[in-house]
Design a protein around this nucleic acid. Structure first.
Lengths: 214, 214
DNA sequence: ATTCTCATCACCCAATTTCGCTATTGCTCT
DNA sequence: AGAGCAATAGCGAAATTGGGTGATGAGAAT
């Protein structure tokens, strides 16, 4: 029995889907909600395998909701259903962790197929969406990674010390780890701060992680 | 009438597909070849809409053949059919310009559906392939590793202060930002440290960012 | 009505961090 | 040989941070 939760603000469609799932063999609807309010407690109280998620909802949109659900319930598979098929929504939905993306024009059997595909470990997409994903993929595959924004020109030792700082070590611990004096650590750190243009350990750590320096 | 050419070195499968296409309504097979020899002149003499391409063929493999066909006949859509579903083949096939990628375990109706999906301007993928494409896509799109997250039960104010800490603010600045005293900030931060099980700002910032608390 | 949590504030004290300097050694490049 | 850089180390002062203990009021929960 595949357990499905529904997030869909249109009352008629939500109820139709609920009936579809509860009458079809092998499917059950464990919850049908009009918005993402109390989403996490509701999902915790009514666990499911698949979440059918609408993008356009009042309050939080379905893509952000997808990201949050995947964060707290990574095992739940999320199937986006929407009328929007633009590249940005598709891209964001996939990056947020959606396992499928189907259009609301899909037939009832199509819905059930998509759900069982996702439940079987696959992904569900309408052919048109699949085409867009492939095009997006080709566009992305060619370009170099975006992340390495700036080069802070840290020396090897400075990087090592910054890494240890990120690991939560104190100056003393770093000195012990690297077999150097506390003063040496102080000197290196002051150089790191200068190069990163920061003035405290917390700032340095935040910048280091966010810019993937370490 | 959708015109289809077949490249498939297995005689039995090739003939089966040929019969399937010629008996099905709306499809016709304009050519069935065991290898890619003379591929371009043959396709020129027997034009088609869709090329059904096997990856594992003697001589030139189906992915290289795909690239060449797309170069000379960009309007032809190419549907890869193979027993291989590894990331590298999928990745290369998509980059070579394939419009779909299905497995040989697909049913006859699945073949016809895939061909008509592609002919209609979409893309065809078995759900398992779609999943792999999505995973590849996410890997290429950057870093979206989903970290399972514990709930540290921070209060709203504690979260706000942690956020400001991550932003690189000092206790003083945080106090000014929130219009509270320095001592209040200290109290909140000590509570945050306790809940996060850390003992310094750098540790707290690292944990907050890595676990997406903020 | 009583308990509990949250946010607020105060004071003390010690440890840590940050920011100035200066200085030596070894290595590389010109 | 000299310039430049990285790593090392030291000193001292000022500032920030971390850890304790305790207290008050508001609001929610029981």
């Amino acid at each position: 029995m595949i357990r499905v939760s529904i997030f869909e603000d249109n009352n008629h469609l939500r109820e139709t889907l609920q009936i579809l799932l509860n009458t079809a063999d092998g499917y059950t609807c464990t919850g049908a909600y009009a918005n993402s309010k109390n989403m996490l407690p509701l999902l915790k109280a009514n666990p499911c395998d698949i979440v059918l998620m609408d993008i356009e909802m009042p309050g939080m949109n379905g893509i952000d909701a997808t990201g949050i659900i995947k964060e707290y319930f990574p095992q739940m598979m999320i199937l986006i259903q929407t009328v929007f098929s633009d590249d940005e929504n598709i891209f964001n939905a996939i990056c947020a962790g959606a396992s499928g993306y189907i259009l609301k024009s899909t037939s009832p059997e199509g819905y059930l197929d998509a759900i069982s595909d996702v439940h079987a470990g696959g992904s569900a997409m309408t052919p048109g969406i699949a085409r867009r994903v492939i095009e997006l993929f080709k566009k992305n595959a060619g370009q170099t990674q975006v992340v390495p924004v700036e080069d802070y020109k840290l020396t090897a030792q400075e990087k090592k010390i910054l890494q240890l700082l990120v690991d939560g070590k104190s100056y003393k611990m770093i000195a012990a780890d690297l077999f150097v004096s506390l003063d040496t650590v102080k000197t290196h750190i002051s150089h790191v701060y200068e190069k990163l243009q920061v003035h405290s350990g917390t700032e340095a750590v935040a910048k280091a992680i966010k810019n993937h320096i370490v």
